[in-house]
Every structure is written in C-alpha cells, then in structure tokens.
Amino acid sequence: MKYHGIRGLLGAAAVATALVTAPPALADYPVQTVRLITHSSPGGGMDVFLRKIGQHLGPIMGVNFVVESVTGSGGAAAMAAVVNGPKDGSVFYGSTPTHIITSLLSNPSVTYEEMAPVVNLFNDPQTVYVLADSPYQTLGDIVADAQENPSSVVVSVSTPGSLDRQVMEEFQALTETSMIVLTHDGGGDAILSVLNGTAQVGVSEIAELRGQMEAGKVRIIATYTDERVPGIGDVPTAREQGYDLVVSKFRGIAGAKDLPPDVIAAWEEGVATLMKDPEFRDWYEAEGLQNAYQTQAEALAARDEFVVSLQAFFDEFGIN
C-alpha cells in the first residue's frame, strides 16, 4: 500500500501558529517563518508531531512554524527540499530513522550525510504484544516455544525495511531461535495479522495499538527500551527480561549541514524548555512517546552509532 500525500496544511498551520505567537523569544531567532518538512502524509504520525511542535515551540522561540509534507521516494524528496533550501535556519526536517534507511538502501541525490541532526526529542518505544488470551506472558515464553518448535512462531512486523523487523531478526540471532517474521505493507495490516491469528506475536509502536489495547484485545508483554514506559501498565523491558535489545526509534529535528551556531543554540534551548511544558508533556505521554532529548552533539553521536548498526544489519542479511 502506498500512501500518497500533499503539501497542503501550509495556510492553516501558518494562521494557527501566527495567532499564538505573542511573547518575544528567549533569543532573537534570525528568521520569522520556519518551514518544518516531513515525508509523512497529512494526518500521519510525523505530521501531527511537527504540528504539535509548531504549536508549542512557536511562542517559546518567537517564530511562525509552517508544516509542509513533501512525500515521495521514501523521504528522499523531503531531504532534498531541506538541503536545497536556504541555510539560514528557515527550513528543517522532521527526522526519524526512515531517512537514514532510505539513504542506505537506495541512492538518493541527497542523503543523511548532507544533513545534521539539530535536536532529538523523543523515542518511539517499540513494543512486543500478543492477543489478550495468548499463552505467552513474557518474552521467555516466546523463546521457549520457538526453541521447542523451530520455525513455527510467527511474528508480525510492519514494513520490510522497518526497525521492528530489524529488531525481531536480531532477537532471533540473540536467542538462537528461528521464528517466522512476517512483513506487511504498513503497521495497520501487521496488527490485523495478530488479531486474526496469522501471527502469534506482533511488534508495534504504542500509538497504533492504543485502540486495541483499550478494548482489551491485545496486551503488551515487553518494550525494547532503556526504561519502563509509563501509561501501558507495568510492562518490563526486554532487558529486564534478560534480552539485551534496545531500539531507538528517534524523533527529532534535522537540518542541512553547517547551519549557523546561533540557530542550533536557539533550537537546543527552545526544545529544552518545550520538553518541560506541562501541556506538551501531557500530549506526548498520551502518545506513548518517551522524552529522549538530545543536543546536536549527542544526537550526532547517536546517529553515527545508529548508521553503523543499521549498515551492519543490512550487510549481514544481504540487503542493499
């Protein structure tokens, strides 16, 4: 399934943010209007995320944020739009692992290497879930079953290039088990496969599971995070259950390389304030996002680490 989208949103978002932009900012930001570009289509996860940032960060930084979605080519079009734009701090990219995966897998004209993270905000926890009446209670149950019956436990993941797929391949290597990892065309289809019994286990982000969780159809048995995730019941992490796997599905802001230092500083400062905003915190906790604030230096280091692990994964499984 291919998701189409359009730029749109421009006018409405600009008006909305213009109205709330009253108090002057911490530092004087060099430009008045900042475009936030995403490869996600309107209404998609990243689009909503950027709009929320625009809404709350606008007053803090004293700028108008405008969200634009530039879809196509797995994020390559959006990356090109950012890198080819002016380098004065007026255009940024809503970054997720997708743009790095696209850069490594295809040969886009602009890759992540011509970009640099500005700040990271969140980690989108990857969770392992099963049907409510499933016999599995812990990851250990799944591993035991997989050891007893090789190639019979089916794990439902989203798209072939996604992180949830990657983590389940690594999980098999780590536990020396053999399971069937079933890929789909998107997150929704993947949940359907668990609901109809095609797969016994699924890996997903929390936001997509919320509806089924509240209806008591599925339950989460582990998260691939550093710490326990609030708001989903007291679910132990994979590491606590003895499987040392942590996935960082970061969400942040990236820009062209070598942006002026005062622009970077303004963002780091602004976002640090934003993360403490109670209203903003209510929103992201309800979304199941974890605060994973990183300054540019930290985000850059994290990205390089991520690239190395991703490349190793692709090499190991012959994907290029």
């Binding site: 196509g72 295809s106 072939p160």
Partner: peptide
C-alpha cells in the same frame, strides 16, 4: 521498487523516484 519481503530494491537502477514503485 522495494521487494515486499526482504526490502531489497528491484529494477530501480539507483533511481530514488522508482523506490516506491
């Protein structure tokens, strides 16, 4: 475009515009 199971690219000839098919 992108192979539905493995994620390798097929017949795209390095052209990002063909990545999504």
């Amino acid at each position: 475009g992108t192979d539905p199971l493995s994620g390798v690219t097929r017949f795209t000839f390095g052209e990002p515009d063909l990545l999504g098919g």
